[in-house]
Design a protein around this nucleic acid. Structure first.
Length: 285
DNA sequence: ATTAATGTTCAGAA
DNA sequence: TTTCTGAACATTAA
């Protein structure tokens, strides 16, 4: 399920490895197909060994481990998980990095992690080692940005306003704004009472302002709750605990339930661009 | 036993 | 140029 809040939570959980060194890198033998890697597996693993972890950063829905040998970029897609604790099961671990204190480091022995793993049940996720330039080339403007520097209303509006695509579908386009996922797109539009099927070009200035504010508020709130752990429970925070924002969803996965906002309509499920959308036809116009 | 659905995104076609 | 479709993959529920 990794959307922005879940990826942000993963990144925060990785901070203890900053300053440490990669002692070894391996792909465990598993019965399912290996996940996508760039460069190809052998080269990638070799390049990682000996690198020092300089920092951790979220870019859109990607986890970036900054190394002195490049940026190690994980794209969790549907079911990926980057963590220091135990994976949900051993059969879908795609990469293990053993980490150690750097020689000569004077770091105290405060909960030194021993390994980082990338677990991905479906295996749609990817791992890439990119230069700074390659990383920048793959970036869209982030919803929350570095150090919570957010995209502005005018920037959001100018990037969207010419499009006739349904507003819900447009919010999922990572080239327009990076970080909004399927679940949170439904929540955002429900909050501001806008019908997800409306063309992006039909929104008023006032609605763009509301959309922008709701987007930031919902995503930041979801980060505080460490994301949403859905049905199959694959997503966990750094301590291997479930997120809790799923308890605050107003629309997503609430088909048939009474709308919490208007108390009149009930939530319906439709399909847009082959993805589920949940909304209240009574109050989202 | 099939089929549909699941958090994402990319290439290629329309 | 923009927008839509299918594919990548594993698993569970209907």
């Amino acid at each position: 399920m990794p959307e922005l809040p879940e990826v942000e939570t993963m990144c925060r959980g990785l901070h203890p490895i900053i300053g440490m060194q990669i002692a070894s890198a391996l792909c465990p033998k598993i019965s399912v197909k290996p996940c996508g890697m760039y460069p190809e597996k052998g080269k990638l693993l070799k390049k990682l060994v000996g690198c020092e972890v300089l920092g951790i950063e979220r870019r859109g829905k990607r986890v970036v481990i900054q190394l002195d040998g490049g940026n190690l970029v994980f794209q969790p897609k549907m079911t990926g998980l980057v963590s220091l604790t135990d994976p949900p099961d051993p059969g879908h671990v795609r990469l293990i990095l053993k980490v150690q204190k750097k020689a000569g480091s004077n770091r105290k022995n405060i909960a030194q992690p021993e390994q980082v793993f990338f677990w991905d049940r479906r295996g749609l996720g990817t791992i890439a080692l990119w230069t700074n330039e390659e990383l920048e080339n793959h970036l869209g403007p982030d919803v929350l940005g570095i150090d919570a520097l957010t995209i502005s209303v005018s920037e959001l509006q100018s990037r969207s306003i010419k499009s006739k695509r349904p507003i819900k579908v447009l919010l999922l386009d990572q080239k327009v704004v990076a970080g909004v996922g399927n679940l949170y797109a439904s929540e955002i539009l429900h909050r501001i009472g806008v019908d997800p099927t409306r063309g992006a070009d039909s929104l008023s200035d006032k609605e763009w302002i509301a959309l922008h504010a709701a987007m930031l508020d919902i995503l930041q709130t979801a980060i505080r709750y460490e994301g949403s752990t859905l049905g199959d429970g694959t997503y966990r925070n750094a301590l291997n605990e479930n997120g809790s924002y799923q308890n605050h969803h107003q629309a997503y996965d609430r088909e048939g339930e009474r709308c919490s906002k208007c108390k009149r309509g009930s939530i319906v499920r439709i399909v847009q661009a082959q993805r589920a959308t949940f909304y209240c036809p009574a109050c989202q116009r």
